[in-house]
Amino acid sequence: MSTTPERGRQTMLGGIAAIWMRHYRVWLRIFWPSVVSGILNPILFLFAFGFGLGAVVKQVGDISYLHFVVPGMIANAALFQSSFEASIPSYTRFRIQRTYEAMLAAPLFFREVVYGEILWAASKGVLSALCLYLVAWAVDGLGSLSGALISFPLVALSCASFASLGLVCTAYARTYEYFSFFFVFWITPSLLFCGVFVDPAAYPQWLQWATWFFPVKHLIEVIRPLCAGLSVDWTMVALHMAYIMAFMFICAAMAARRMAKKLFD
């Protein structure tokens, strides 16, 4: 690594916080467009699916369709926002604006830049999820408020996992067009086959197995009973969360490795 910050710094927290603050201050300039679309868009989706599908699918398993679809939408909003933020916008900073090089000219470690990026993207996912929790709470879409409160930190933790995958794509992409793969192999299957709007039981068996690869499926599996107020098997919750965390560590390591190669070789 070519960067040598001042000697004797004990933790990376200060550096990560500095990166996060930089992104936050840039984002403040587009505060309104982000929040308006973050709140209005899920309302429209809830309305359309509530009317359209909810009229036909009244009940999924033990819960009403509204209680079924709300956790799915929370997970999906978290997934989309956090991994998207780490994809095309990060790529713009990394390759086009050369923000990373500029940051590395400051007394910062390379890993602080990467982790700051992931933390920032995850924060945007958390904000999106928060918007959805509010909308869901307003339309009585949360069966159990305490369950929803417990689910929130789990969603926040998963956001870091989603963001790391986005950053892997940023690290490997050569042009903007490469993000097609990100959408086709990550965003779309996560939305369609992981049980966001429809019970995945409708799909063929092989597809149901294959989609366990996607962390969002594990997250939905965890937060759906929590938000609906059903009984929860905590061992399974721990296992699902362990998968999501493992996914995060692998992706973050892959992204950091590849980015270091592109920056320093």
């Binding site: 097609s180 793969f181 779309t188 369609l192 086959f193 429809v198 409708a202």
Partner: peptide, 21 residues
Amino acid sequence: AACFAFVLDPAVFLFAFGYGL
């Protein structure tokens, strides 16, 4: 790369909605 997103993606949607909905 460009075709991937706007050709394959809607086809996946077709499959998903055809089955799911």
